[in-house]
Design a protein around this nucleic acid. Structure first.
Lengths: 200, 200
DNA sequence: GACAAAAAAGCACGATCGTTCGTATCTTCG
DNA sequence: CGAAGATACGAACGATCGTGCTTTTTTGTC
């Protein structure tokens, strides 16, 4: 039926916000119910368990990430331009994307790294896929002769992801006003090191 | 008196372990008391409040970090060797350093980034100091002519820290067996890019 | 060994947690 | 409109949370 699905989505939207600041464990059903002007039990029924809620929140977060970062970057030209688009959109996502507490997936990555269970499994799966996606984009840049053939796609993906983790750290914890500039500089250095060496 | 201080330290040691897996918020006084075979109230009296406990845990963690990573690295030669020592010891710390849940400071960085209070303040302070320490080590490498003069010390520190965050992510969440190799490769690439260009 | 001080325990409190269940209200469709 | 079913509520549960109090036990000193 219709009404249920609508409120369910409304709940999940606000759950995403709340979880980005409080974490997936700190995301409490009582507080979430208050925010949505409904009773604990009424809200609870939509998810069956807290674990179910967490899984749905993770699913929504990865879907939003994909459509905010990956999908639009596909419109950029293959190779370096696309990697550049991935990078800048990724940074934008970490900033303001309706996530007052920064990237939920990054927060969950640290929170769940020692908490076995379906939530961890889902997150690991999504992150592995993302790493592969990045590596594939690098491989395309090699095919397009934007990058040298001896560039290691997975290493590059690791370095790219590292820059974003560093950005998240500098920006969100340290409130470093130079965080964005540093991240950009690091990205440029990374790309420059992968380009074909000039003949001279 | 003596006995009190001894148990206090014993408590803090196990609190460090517990907090590394459960986080600073998930670190509960009841569970910590069970682990140490004492009552909640007895343990509580040592710290006055949960916030006090968290602050003491953070303080112990930064002290241990300093003595495990920074202090021994000072025995390495100034410049690139010392930076190399800092990097490898930092990785070792993230691995096995009596921290079953990985580096507590990294976990706390994500957990506290939106939780104002003295705990956050203390962590930010420690991390800022660490960034300065790294930048200073880079500046020394420039003085020693290991690195070019146009290398940006703070940018290098940012990149170094980013690699470690990436390592933590790949190792702890993804359980990637290549994590250490990737981190090392990224480090070598970073250092190679900072060395004086060969005359040719 | 007595005595003061320190350390730990015991107990209780209000709050909040996730969860269950019975009941009431609203939506949807014949 | 009326019946069926989805949706939400209210109350209560056992557990655990951080935190006060008072009392008991342990410790160190003369």
């Amino acid at each position: 039926m219709r009404k249920g699905e609508a409120t369910r989505e409304r709940i999940l939207e606000s759950a995403l916000e709340l979880a980005s600041t409080e974490g997936l464990t700190g995301l409490s059903i009582g507080r979430l119910a208050d925010r949505n002007g409904m009773s604990k039990s009424g809200l609870f029924a939509h998810f069956g368990s807290k674990e179910g809620l967490q899984l749905d929140v993770l699913e929504l977060a990865t879907a939003k990430f994909r459509e905010s970062v990956f999908t639009p970057a596909l419109r950029a030209d293959r190779g370096e331009p696309r990697l550049r688009a991935l990078f800048t959109r990724w940074m934008d996502w970490a900033d303001h994307q309706s996530l007052p507490g920064g990237c939920l997936l990054t927060a969950a990555a640290v929170e769940l790294d020692d908490q076995p269970g379906p939530a961890r499994d889902a997150l690991v799966d999504a992150q592995r896929q993302w790493a592969d996606t990045l590596a594939r984009a690098v491989r395309i840049a090699i095919e397009e002769r934007h990058f040298r053939a001896d560039v290691d796609p997975h290493l590059f993906a690791f370095q790219l992801h590292s820059i974003l983790l560093g950005y998240h750290h500098a920006r969100r914890l340290l409130r470093d006003p130079d965080a964005a500039r540093r991240a950009h500089d690091a990205f440029e250095a990374l790309v420059a090191g992968a380009r074909p060496r000039k003949a001279r």
